[in-house]
Design a protein around this nucleic acid. Structure first.
Lengths: 363, 363
DNA sequence: GTGAAAGCGCTAACAC
DNA sequence: GTGTTAGCGCTTTCAC
């Protein structure tokens, strides 16, 4: 457990003062070439590396060149893609990234953010949970810059990067309505999450615009993870008055729907695209957003703030794209859609997936 | 941009000495209740939060309570699952996690690790690239603990957590051999990556044990990402002497194979399980490993080392599991397998996916 | 060009 | 119980 050598050690070894070592390490001009060489030599033989923590403590520009990234769940593909792009932006600028998952738990969010701030992060890219407004206000008063991504933090005057969830959901639900569906179920994560509220609102509005009321028997909130979603969808499928179509509020719920076999019995459109969505049978139509673009934009905004931009908080709305892969049709139409996609996809294998009609699905 | 208040400010506001504030903040005993109350009050009104960086600089136990996590690509589902479990272990112990992706580039790895060490991390969970041996040796001499995960760092005497890639690959290839395949292609990522070398070795050994030579026309290395893999597989499919079966060296390559439609023309077994593998047509058989278990185990080893465990380096080999979903059969058999899986899976929808026989696939 | 002194925000060690 | 002094590893400032 060799102690890490300090500048003092290097100075002694090179027979110079501590200050000279500091200058050499910092790459400052004004050190005689031979002196510098002696210092470099000592650095090499001792294996010295500067302690950037001590350095930052004293520097004029009291920035730590570290940001915090706080997401709901780093293991979720959506957030990990977002995280990677934040990290890339930080790397380009020579910043380090502290990372933490909240599990959508305001207490853990508070723990994590508090620890980050105690480590003097210059800023935070934050996927906020529902709570902790006052807490963040206090941190910001201390000079920590905050940019929200994916969701705004209600009542916090900070930059935010997100998509128009309500409009995206509306598009999805209208797509189902156009295909003749009237009994459209909504399955989503907790309503405490802003994106879920927005997407549900888009669902409600699209139904209302079509003169339809929301049937609460067809609505399930609070589904955390794909297993929970699959179970809920199983119940729905077994009920006496099942829907003919499903709109799912995020990628995990869509996954659960696919796992439960719902995409074969019902029309299905999900929010968030996911890997292999186009290779399923039937391929799943989605409202797609770009997590890497969200992360990149949020990071750019944050670094702008860190660099001194003190304009009024900005809200950036990124695009959502409806990707029609055929799963939004009636079940009878879906086989056709699958056929077309497959032929176009491989250019070779022509086939039709035979679907067992369930009788319930055709409205 | 209010300056962050310091203990000095709190001390002045509460009319006590700096030391008393330090004691209150640290929760030490031996402060009179009323004095403590006055200090707490001052802390609240000033919005004081301790600067843990300055704290760590002076503390006896010179640990930063921060670890670094360095993976190939945080956006890759395998690594993000691993990252999440490392982060959970760290959170449980009150450690923070600095995170970085290397892109399998030794230079970026060096940059990132160097910056982490300059920030005095207590240890590193590392998915090593091929290079930088001497560099790591130097860091470890300075007291930074290192645990490798997913791959060992050749020549570095450190703990390592990984699966038996060679054996897993052997199982996969033998499975294909048992099903009568003799022209089995190997598609993998760069050979510089240890896991890829091991998996290829397992492929070679299994073929050799069956008295078969490796046909280099059926081998592709260096496939980064699923698009590259899909393109390479497309070429293979279009060649005059295509294989009848594919063994893919990681999840991304398997994904590429599925995207290229290879799983419908050839038998396919992939290394690494992936979301929805069981919902594809045909469902894809895989050699499965548990990235969360890898991360958790690595983190536990690392914290053991940080807590002073200085036993000889340990190598932990985690289990691999062959998940037979039917895609390893001959194409004729695959339809049967798909049928069985579907019936068992949904319990409701009985169906047979019709596959267009290509004539080439049956050996 | 180089160095001595002061101090960043905090804790360790000891005094009172 | 509380305060004083010293110092973590480094940079700033200013002297020579």
């Amino acid at each position: 457990m060799a102690e890490r050598p300090t500048m003092k050690d290097v100075a002694r070894a090179a027979g110079v003062s501590l200050m000279t070592v500091s200058r050499v390490v910092a790459g400052e001009a004004g050190v005689a070439p031979q002196t510098a060489a002696r210092v470099e030599e000592a650095i090499r033989t001792l294996g010295y590396q500067r302690n950037d923590i001590a350095r930052n403590l004293r520097r004029k520009a009291q920035d730590s060149r570290t940001i915090g990234l706080v997401v709901d769940d780093l293991a979720n593909p959506f957030f990990s893609a977002l995280a990677r792009s934040v990290e890339d932006e930080a790397y380009r600028r020579g910043f380090l990234v502290l990372v933490g998952s909240t599990n959508d738990d305001p207490r853990r969010e508070r723990d994590v953010v508090s620890a980050f701030c105690a480590r003097q992060v210059d800023g935070l890219v934050l996927v906020p949970t529902g709570g902790n407004r006052a807490f963040f206000r206090a941190q910001m008063a201390r000079g920590v810059k905050v940019v929200c991504v994916d969701r705004p933090a209600a009542g916090l005057p900070v930059d935010c990067v997100a998509v128009d969830n309500r409009a995206g959901a509306g598009t999805a639900v209208r797509h189902l309505l156009v295909h003749g569906h009237r009994r459209i179920a909504y399955l989503g994560d907790r309503q405490e999450i802003w994106t879920q509220r927005e997407r549900f609102a888009g669902y409600e509005e699209a139904l209302a615009a079509a003169g339809l009321a929301v049937d609460t028997a067809l609505v399930r909130h609070g589904l955390r993870g794909h297993q929970e979603a699959a179970a809920a969808i199983g119940e729905l499928m077994a009920s006496s008055a099942p829907p003919t179509a499903l709109f799912s509020g995020n990628d995990l719920v869509t996954l659960g729907a696919v796992e439960a076999g719902a995409s074969r019995r019902f029309a299905l459109v999900g929010f968030d695209d996911f890997l292999l969505a186009d290779k399923l049978n039937p391929p799943v139509s989605v409202v797609s957003q770009d997590p890497a673009a969200l992360g990149r934009t949020a990071a750019q905004l944050l670094f702008g703030r860190i660099d001194g931009d003190d304009a009024a908080p900005r809200s950036v709305v990124l695009e959502t794209r409806f990707v029609d892969r055929g799963s939004g049709g009636k079940v009878g139409e879906m086989a056709e859609a699958a056929k077309v996609v497959e032929v176009a996809g491989t250019g070779k294998v022509a086939e039709v997936a035979e679907l067992a009609g369930t009788g319930e699905a055709g409205e």
